[in-house]
Design a protein around this nucleic acid. Structure first.
Lengths: 395, 395
DNA sequence: AACCAAATTAAAAACGTTTTAGCTCCTGAC
DNA sequence: GTCAGGAGCTAAAACGTTTTTAATTTGGTT
């Protein structure tokens, strides 16, 4: 190892007395006393220190822009560092400082079209601080969740964002014990103990129901989401409340269970259409199920929106395709990720003992082509009923 | 700090002379000599060693299941480790061993519906080895790409997967110099120097063209993808070759430039329909553009597939929705991620000097409802022409 | 009883940083 | 001419592992 004698090197470099003289330093490195790193291995702070004729401590301080190093020296170090392509080892730094400059992002299923958009939001702000994102896909399995959390803690992540699911008590406790900040998204910790970002599900559902009622609908069906994922309960509860508020028919057979998948939306619609007294409108707890319903209705030859109106929730990217043209409640996905990341970064930088904060984003109604007054046009279907309505943001 | 005197502790534990005696060890820990970790801080290997009355080296060996430790001791250590919740610090381990058990995944835009599916494939296999995935979203920006690569190298990642883009020469060189394995996906390194996973674009496009020709189409338009993303050139070249092979009209105005976005598909279709001599079929380099075209045709009142057939490429999730029902070429996305991860893991575990390998996956034709013989039904549009065709896998 | 090989374990040296405590100049004030 | 104080730097101690080398114990033979 060439770097076993920094002492000599330092004396040498110092003796030159001209720290600003790059040529001298280069010659020093090249003349056989071997300040340059071994060819293959990446340079360490010792190599750089030797090359600059200063101590590792000074190199560290110079690169960190600490005030206790002469401007001249700082610049020299910086220049040489760039020259030899020196970059501090994250592992060493992490070990010493007890952090990793990466944040863990725990999602249920990255392939769900809702998720990547919020991931984008997170990435955007995390990137600005040059932190890394560790993606953990749990498939909603408890075991995988626990294992990932443990792994993240071992890595001493700076913080953690959990999307559309909750950690079990043990994991939660571990995270708290490790003192790493946690932001939950779309699903609150049972004890409200963490920072939280979500959407006002109640007002979102309310908007949808109000709108349908304003169109004249009285029998409105609801396709529920799965309990384990984002606030399905909230949305259903809100639906029930809204229905009651309007004094509508609270027929329990109008509420059917889905699991947030397109298939479940498909079968939900089929079972609803099999009812002796059909609903005139279907509100689904997410867009995927709404789209599934749309597909089923199409297959059944039931016209949308002439025979049945359909409303989704989330406003995923493809919902606005002219052939789908789904009326839905917009969930600000990117903003959600953005807010979660901001909250997390603030918590990381600031006081960890402050009480938990919440950010509740506002949904909005997006009226497209799958909604109309009930029994509107009992004639043969026109080319694209209500398509001319276009995309308008309501609320 | 309670852990400042491991020496005494060890001597103490050793004096007991009964390493197998758990009770003794526990008493040792409890009797005030402080073998237990300080309340808040997480336990280190020293704490555990003291608690078990053995040296840190033995603990390490025991946990790593090295053969040179007595079964009895190993079990004791394991038990106690679990008891106090000991987990090795990744930073320390990484520093010592020069690796990080995480792999970097560089994507252009996670919000592109194609991407999450391949990410799932990667995650699945990476998870099996309990490695972490660091997600890097480059937005196809050179600067962001370079910065991420550097950050990944600082982290001493075990390996790297780059999706649908290429690293510039400098970055490539850095990665090579660091000796970390790299797998490129959908886009080969210019010098073929890395492992590669892709799809046979040529045969995919060929299938699509063959199918359209077999339906009777002679004027087939092509919507090109953007150079910077996945093998747009390959697909266009393959299109030209196929057209030529069938002796079709090679009218250059039938090839229009897109950028893989839905909007570009929309405007491509509009400009194609503005031609004095319209194409009877449109083949797009990806599904998003094909769906964009579908939307535009719908707006223009042009019937699909009666007036114009549309074929996509990739088979993204929503392409199979009954209302879109897009005929397309399936790109095995999950398998792509799977293969890339496998290749990478093999390279990490095995010989890094072996010549680079390639995995080229086979596309397949998925016939759905957006294709039909040209001029098939010049009568008023039926409810869903060709919908009954359903989903059949061809090829 | 002594010796040897094998089986276990311990000690110590890395790994590459950051930070604390001190050291050495130098400057200006007394 | 000394002293205080600050600027600029260095030495050395962590941080928590793994691995190499050395030491010790164990058990079997003579």
């Amino acid at each position: 190892m060439s770097r076993n004698r920094p002492r000599e090197e330092q004396a040498n470099g110092q003796g030159d007395g001209v720290p600003g003289n790059g040529a001298t330093a280069v010659r020093t490195a090249a003349n056989g006393t071997a300040a340059a790193p071994a060819s293959g291995a990446r340079p360490t702070i010792l190599d750089l220190a030797a090359l600059c004729g200063v101590s590792p401590a000074t190199v560290s301080n110079a690169l960190a822009d600490k005030p206790n190093v002469k401007a001249e020296t700082r610049d020299l170090v910086r220049r040489k560092a760039r020259e030899i392509g020196y970059h501090a080892s994250s592992a060493a730094r992490g070990l010493r400082m007890g952090r990793s400059w990466s944040i863990g992002l725990v999602v249920g299923d990255i392939a769900n079209p809702f998720v990547p958009d919020v991931v984008r939001g997170v990435e955007d702000v995390v990137w600005r601080e040059r932190k890394n994102l560790i993606l953990c896909n749990t498939d909603f399995q408890a075991e995988k969740k626990t294992a990932y959390v443990r792994s993240l803690l071992d890595k001493q992540i700076d913080g953690m964002i959990v999307l559309s699911q909750i950690l079990d008590a043990h994991d939660m406790e571990r995270v708290a014990a490790a003192g790493i900040p946690l932001v939950t998204v779309n699903r609150r910790a049972p004890d409200f103990s963490t920072d939280y970002v979500g959407i006002d599900n109640q007002s979102g559902v309310r908007m949808a129901v109000d709108y349908l009622v304003s169109l004249g609908h009285r029998r409105i069906a609801f396709v529920k989401g799965l309990f384990r994922s984002s606030s399905a309960d909230d949305r259903f509860a809100a639906f029930q409340a809204a229905v009651q508020a309007h004094g509508l028919d609270g027929d329990p057979s109008l509420a059917v269970q889905g699991d947030y998948s397109m298939e479940s939306g498909d079968s939900a619609a089929r079972s609803l259409m099999a009812l002796s007294q059909r609903p005139t409108a279907i509100l689904a707890a997410n867009d995927l199920m709404a789209l599934g319903a749309l597909g089923a209705l199409h297959d059944l030859g039931i016209r949308v929106p002439a025979d049945v109106s359909v409303v989704g929730f989330d406003n995923i990217q493809l919902a606005e395709h002219p052939l789908l043209n789904l009326t839905t409640i917009n969930h600000p996905k990117r903003e959600t990720g953005d807010a979660a990341a901001r909250l997390l970064l603030q918590r990381i930088a600031g006081d960890r003992t402050e009480p938990p904060r919440s950010v509740v984003l506002k949904p909005s109604l997006i009226v497209r082509g799958t909604t109309a007054p009930p029994q509107a046009v009992p004639k043969p279907r026109r080319r694209r009923p209500a398509a001319a309505r276009g995309t308008a943001e309501g609320g």
